[in-house]
Design a protein around this nucleic acid. Structure first.
Length: 306
DNA sequence: AAGACGAAAGTGGTTGA
DNA sequence: TCAACAACTTTCGTCTT
């Protein structure tokens, strides 16, 4: 792996920065701009980027991605190096440094704003710190790869948060993200897919059971109802009733059934609202649950008890 | 009157030729 | 790249409680 890491031909430094839009690679140590067209290292650079970010996480002092510059400055060029250069190179050096300054400050400004927005949305949704960190990491990577272009900063922030939630198994629905960020649901979904694909993030399909606790407490259902709903879910998963279906629909149907069985009836509309699906979807899932899990008699029994 | 049910038509995304 | 397709939504009429 080590020999894949490219070094700056000028100073041998490995602290290279890839500006994708401009097609430039810039050495942070000496300010040299390496033209991208010199060699097509596209694949290697991608590797380099992710390896770099991986290794950063494992080594050195703890870093946080929720600070816009990751706690590291990107001050470019040292005045003390200048005496080595003749006047022509010196001008060039200043020009390059100015460019790098513009580029890096643009990115840092963007990150600063974006991370403030990220924190705002994250605290609105009461997300754990670990998720916020992950989202900040994803966003930072996205910016470095130039993925924010053509998209609003806010939507990428929302997409990063959504992805981070999924990875940490504390799923929020797209509707919740949408409400918290003020970005349209489909826009968030779009950027979410785009960013995760471009960054090669693997996201597990979300588990319906992860939603149960939150929905149940929003509906003020008892703990028994909640755990019974999870049992129903597990049975449903065994007979592959859950594959291909929206996890929120399944979770809400399981909760609805469970609430009926425990005499804590909620209307389909109430359940539908907190789960962010329609009554129709709940009905469909509910019907499937009754058929496949043979719960009809139990429902009838509960009814008679009234 | 409210809730439950289901049919029909529309939407956005995935898949496979 | 386009068409078929599945899941889900919206809307609306009917039945049940």
């Amino acid at each position: 792996m080590a020999d894949m890491v490219k070094k700056c031909p000028e100073c041998g430094g490995i602290n290279l920065f890839w500006n994708r839009e401009k097609g430039e690679i810039i050495c942070r140590d000496c300010g040299l701009v390496i033209e991208d067209k010199m060699v097509d290292f596209t694949q290697e650079w991608r590797e380099f980027d992710s390896n770099e970010s991986e290794s950063r996480r494992r080594t050195g002092a703890p870093m946080t991605f929720t600070q816009y510059d990751q706690g590291l400055g990107t001050e470019v060029g040292q005045k003390s190096d200048l005496f080595k250069l003749d006047s022509g190179d010196r001008n060039k050096f200043f020009r390059l440094r100015k460019w790098q300054y513009r580029i890096s400050t643009a990115i840092e400004r963007n990150l600063k704003l974006a991370l403030a927005e990220l924190k705002r949305v994250s605290s609105f949704l009461k997300l754990p710190k670990s998720v916020e960190e992950e989202a900040a990491r994803i966003y930072t990577l996205a910016v470095q790869r130039g993925l924010v272009r053509g998209r609003s900063m806010e939507s990428v922030v929302a997409g990063a948060l959504y992805a981070a939630c999924r990875r940490h198994e504390v799923p929020r629905t797209l509707d919740e993200l949408s409400e918290a960020s003020g970005i349209e649901k489909k826009e968030i979904g779009r950027t979410y897919r785009f960013v995760t694909r471009e960054l090669g993030l693997t996201i597990l399909p979300s588990n319906p059971a992860d939603y149960i606790a939150r929905f149940a407490s929003a509906l003020k259902l008892s703990a028994e109802t909640q755990s019974n709903a999870i049992e129903i879910l597990e049975k449903a998963q065994k007979i592959e009733l859950t594959s291909g279906r929206g996890p929120t629909g399944i979770a809400s149907a399981a909760l609805y059934v469970s609430a009926l069985l425990h005499g804590e009836k909620r209307t389909q509309r109430e359940v539908a609202d907190v789960a962010g699906v329609t009554e129709v979807t709940i009905r469909n899932r509910y019907k499937e649950l009754l058929e496949e899990l043979k719960l009809e008699k139990e429902i009838k029994k509960t009814k008679k008890r009234k």
